[in-house]
Nucleic acid binder design. Sequence first.
DNA 1: TATCATTGCGTCATATTAACGCAATGATAA
DNA 2: TTATCATTGCGTTAATATGACGCAATGATA
Lengths: 256, 256
Amino acid sequence: MSWEKEIRQLFAEGHEKFLRNISVDCIIFGFHENELKVLLLQAKYAGSWALPGGFILKDEHMDDAAKRILQERTGVDDVYMQQFYVFSEPDRSNKKINKLFLKNAGIELEESWLFERFITVGYSALVDFSKVLPVPDNISSDCKWFNIHDIPGMILDHRNILDKALENLRMQLNYHPVGYNLLPEKFTMPELQKLYETILDRKLDRRNFQRKIMSTGILKRLDETKKGVAHKAPYYYKFDLRKYQKALKGGMGFEL
Amino acid sequence: MSWEKEIRQLFAEGHEKFLRNISVDCIIFGFHENELKVLLLQAKYAGSWALPGGFILKDEHMDDAAKRILQERTGVDDVYMQQFYVFSEPDRSNKKINKLFLKNAGIELEESWLFERFITVGYSALVDFSKVLPVPDNISSDCKWFNIHDIPGMILDHRNILDKALENLRMQLNYHPVGYNLLPEKFTMPELQKLYETILDRKLDRRNFQRKIMSTGILKRLDETKKGVAHKAPYYYKFDLRKYQKALKGGMGFEL
DNA sequence: TATCATTGCGTCATATTAACGCAATGATAA
DNA sequence: TTATCATTGCGTTAATATGACGCAATGATA
């Protein structure tokens, strides 16, 4: 099917396939070069960036929809995702954006379910940066990682959604497998500490951090050390998944 | 407008007034006689009980919808409410229940937006039991408080929603004005402790509890003591709202 | 071979928590 | 009138957690 035909069909008949008035938006967090990142899409014909979002099939669980949307729109597969908040301001509507999009695509339509008001459910995803190759979809011209401190202009209330996701990530740091999902399988203690510092947005004492993390027993130190650093080489660690799962149930047992 | 006509109109034309495929369900918590309670409705012609729920007007914020629904369906007004989770199982549909309801009400309809699938957003409300006089609405035959440990059979996944709300309440105990909203203006320390014990579902040491609560400075002790008890009379306390708000921002500063 | 940033492990003073003691209170029963 | 008793308010103590910092070891680079 041609691209224009696909778009026209989505606008004209999508309501037969998807639930109405509800969308899902995904915030994909990654960690790279000691910085927290989010994956954003740029819609065709639009200067602003957007969260990867989409709709729920009429017979689909919302969690599955979020995973499918993420896969279809960015190529990212099989990740840890969780709903975190519903955004329901009455004036959050894609009407103008979608009309402009159609106009630029050379499609004319008077009515569409996509001109209606949408309530959106925010999903937060944590991915291993090194395993993700962002691929923009049909309706996007670009798909890129952005540093959390260097977010470009975004459509609608997407900036607000992003901020809420970050706040949520902070709150849940001690109760969810944040480190496990954001870091590669093996990592050094300074890397893990930097991740915590970035999310919490404050410095932590190196020695106390190590002591507390190790006291939970969720990490296993490997015999291997990092190579090629111009100072004492740090050990690699990896998560002891069994103990991690267990520890998470009652919080981490410490405050950072 | 007659009752039947109102119902018929809701089923036949409600989709012009409300958003589709989305509903809101409220869990109203109260505290009475040292027990945690929830307010439930019994739909006409149905044996099972249900959470007070409803729909979002096309131009209404979801938070406002939740408040309006609670007011319309139970008479409860002006309370502390918060969304806590979205329930989206594909098979959670009122189709059967609504068809039965129509049949019993003597109304015939082949098609209705209310036969479609609904995703529902759970809202948690905390109310002062003593200030609430439950009033069932048009479509409900009864409206009653139930002890949290003695919940009757409920429609659809409402039991699941209730359990999730309780779990959520537990998690947020140290970060939200739970005590402030669930207790009357003045209360004794044993009452407050019992509230915490009921929500957390475990015993707390009386003396340590008092010391920790008081150390936060969120309570003001009154000069008045409780009358008519066959032992040493406990003092009354009330919340120091200014300090309470402040303390909540960084958690309560202690673990219970 | 010296330098230097960084790491791993340790110390110590202070704060927080859990567990428990005890006198005071005031309605009820003797 | 007085003793009884469950309960309250306030306090003590030991164990544990936390925050702030010291110092020798490491290993690429100068």
